[in-house]
Design a protein around this nucleic acid. Structure first.
Lengths: 238, 238
DNA sequence: CATGAAATGTAACGATTTGTAATATGGGTG
DNA sequence: CACCCATATTACAAATCGTTACATTTCATG
């Protein structure tokens, strides 16, 4: 699996001190959320399987427990735009209107915990600290999205890709001789749709980073970050 | 002032049914938020005056009552990036860590209502519906940010500017002979920093829209949208 | 291990955007 | 009313990214 299931930090960039180990940690929480004593449902999805579609009734909220989920939209011209990737510990589908505003799809094999909206409301009513927790998760998502905005707004292709790899590197706990090992469960097309670049530009950029020794690419799905500093330089300037 | 203080909708695009007329509508709400009977503080800011800076202790949350506030970051290379504009009814400074993750600055003369973090916590504890309201505002902000992401990711300069003008047009209640009148309290530089474009590109694009008759430009700070449909076309395709 | 399909990588070319610089406009002030 | 300064506009050269086309690698399957 992609991310080692250890103590990784949610939405790490630019924010120290925000650590959310998951929405429902105790069995009591899960029972409260799902109702009279039964478990919150567990969902398995294979690669490219949709969890829900834009416009669907927002009946549930999900917590990723394994794998990666991408949130995406299909634009009027047919282009796909990936709004975010969600990793273990992240929640998916928290939204204010009655319907989802985007599609959600499993990138690879994925497991999620399903929580009914009613259960969520119940917990908000019964436990004030739960409301705060939910609010913290929403603001954490806001922070992550702001970083993504910053990434998309004013940067070159090289900076975007570097920023993306850094984000993944910060999540990853895998090491190989001091270097950070980053697995890429998503395709180049996914990365392009996430960064607003074409697949060719993504490919070119990654190749250039390999040539210049910033990263190593033992497989197409695995990046070894030789120098986090140089990667940060590429992400920061120009 | 820019936006007529009427019943405008918050974060309107792509979401019907989310209507938040403001965080603290009743005097009772304000009293509960600010403490023992005194008012929540009111703040006046002139153009280009900062409300708070990135890294400041997040002691307060603000609600814009008049004018426009922009949230921005200064990038390592010195570039400024505007994350969002906030209009009357919007809240500013709601964040999970103890410090703000961005700067906030008044675009023109602006008035805000100040709410202490402690007061906010108190209201969450004492009123479950307030927690839900706050959560709804956070998710509304998420929706708005997702739209902005979509705008930045995969679009041409023309589409970005068209999308931006549409957003402002949807907020505006001013009409002139059937056409929507949009005031631009922000400079071209602001727009560029918001859309990830240079000031020249913004200027060129707006000029082209004027030439092709999509908009009229009686002053540099005022746009009259001749055809919302054609503007939407520009925003949607290519 | 061979095969084929899908994904990825490379290269040349063209379109769009940016950067530079020069000009125009407009609001504020004496 | 004229001047001045900041902002906005326009024109042209240069760089970046997208497009198209093709080669290569990877992986699932026989």
């Amino acid at each position: 699996m992609t991310a080692a299931a250890g103590n990784h930090v949610l939405f790490t960039r630019h924010e120290a001190g925000v650590f959310e180990p998951g929405l429902f940690k105790t069995a009591a929480d899960r029972n409260l959320a799902s109702g009279a004593g039964d478990h919150a449902g567990v969902i398995h999805l294979g690669g490219r399987e949709d969890l829900f579609l834009e416009g669907d009734d927002a009946t549930h909220v999900y917590e990723v427990t394994d794998g990666v989920v991408c949130l995406y939209r299909i634009m009027p011209d047919g282009n796909r735009h990936i709004l975010a990737f969600r990793f273990p510990g992240d929640i998916v589908g928290l939204c204010s209107p009655a319907t989802y505003g985007y599609n959600a799809q499993a990138v690879g094999d994925t497991r999620l915990r399903r929580i009914s909206r009613a259960g969520l409301e119940r917990m908000i009513d019964e436990r004030a600290d739960f409301a705060r927790k939910l609010l913290r998760m929403a603001t954490a998502e806001l922070n992550a999205m702001r970083d993504h905005l910053t990434c998309l707004a004013s940067k070159s292709a090289e900076a975007k890709v570097a920023d993306f790899l850094l984000m993944l590197a910060e999540r990853s706990t895998a090491r190989a001789g001091g270097a950070v090992v980053v697995n890429l469960p998503m395709t180049r097309t996914d990365i392009g749709d996430y960064l607003g670049l074409t697949i060719e530009t993504v490919s070119r950029t990654i190749s250039k980073m390999r040539r210049t020794g910033v990263i190593d690419l033992p497989r197409t799905t695995q990046v070894i970050v030789r120098s986090t500093d140089r990667l940060a330089e590429l992400a920061g300037a120009a």
